[in-house]
């Protein structure tokens, strides 16, 4: 167990450094960050008419996070494992004396770092609302933190999907679909349909698995420990699936 922990830490260190490098060695990270910033700006100002609401807060900004993450983060995570399979470097990677959990965690953390950087670069919006009025800064900080954790949850889904299939494009598509299910489960439209078809009890149960539901608590400025645990649990679950799928490939074919 102690040895496993050491081999996991070694795996995290080695793969985190490599993957982070890889993101910035290609235009991928830059393109991702730039596009994300442009779209979040557009949605916040244009689609939610930021200036017309009359209140100085970032609600219209945070509202879009789950939806943009759903589309964008799978693009960041799709290469994590399928790239290795395509280039044959998985052969090399799996011959190293590190645990697969360490490799998977290191890869996830690298993608998470890039998404965190994009999030950090939205801080000028925070400054802007402080210039315009007196927002609830505690609630905003909390929303930022929750958004960061939620990004990890989206990325863990995408990373696992990229270990399941060998094609990057396919990894992206099924990553978005899985992310959509986890997001839309809390959408009033979907919830209404589920509740009327299967009863409100089932509707509420489905809502409990939605990223929207758990993210909204933070937007209201309440730290729900349950929501934090939910996101961390989602990350742990998908990381475990990721490790399982990599190990499964070891025992079947490449």
């Amino acid at each position: 167990m102690k040895q496993w922990a050491r081999d996991t830490l070694t795996g995290i260190r080695a793969s985190y450094g490599r993957e982070l490098r890889a993101y910035f060695a290609t235009p991928l990270a830059y393109v991702f960050i730039a596009t994300f910033l442009m779209l979040i700006g557009f949605f916040t100002w244009e689609a939610s008419s930021f200036f017309d609401t009359g209140t100085a807060d970032l609600q219209p900004f945070f509202y879009w996070h789950p939806w943009l993450y759903m589309i964008f983060l799978p693009a960041l995570s799709m290469r994590l494992w399928s790239d290795e399979t395509a280039a044959g470097t998985s052969e090399l990677l799996l011959s190293l004396p590190v645990s697969v959990t360490g490799l998977a965690a290191g890869k996830l953390l690298a993608a998470w770092t890039v998404s965190a950087l994009a999030l950090l670069l939205t801080c000028p919006m925070w400054l802007t609302v402080n210039y315009l009025g007196t927002p609830d800064n505690a609630a905003i900080l909390l929303s930022y933190l929750m958004s960061f954790i939620m990004a990890g949850a989206y990325l863990s889904i995408g990373a696992a999907m990229s270990s399941l299939v060998t094609s990057q494009v396919l990894a992206y598509v099924i990553g978005v679909v899985a992310a959509f299910l986890f997001t839309a489960a809390g959408w009033p439209m979907v919830l209404g349909a589920v509740s009327s078809a299967l009863g409100t009890g089932i509707g509420e149960l489905v809502a409990q698995f939605s990223f929207l539901t758990h993210f909204e608590t933070a937007e209201r400025g309440v730290l729900e420990v349950g929501s934090l645990v939910f996101f961390l649990g989602v990350i742990a679950l998908w990381l475990a699936l990721n490790v399982l799928w990599v190990n499964q490939r070891r025992s079947t074919a490449r």
Binding site: R18, A87, G88, T89, E91, L92, S95, P97, S99
Partner: peptide
């Protein structure tokens, strides 16, 4: 596995490498 792999050097067929490094 990992104890064994610590004592092993492996060149896979076709020598796959990380091209960006």
């Amino acid at each position: 596995r990992r104890e064994a792999q610590r004592r092993l050097g492996y060149l896979p067929e076709g020598a796959p490498l990380y091209a960006d490094m």
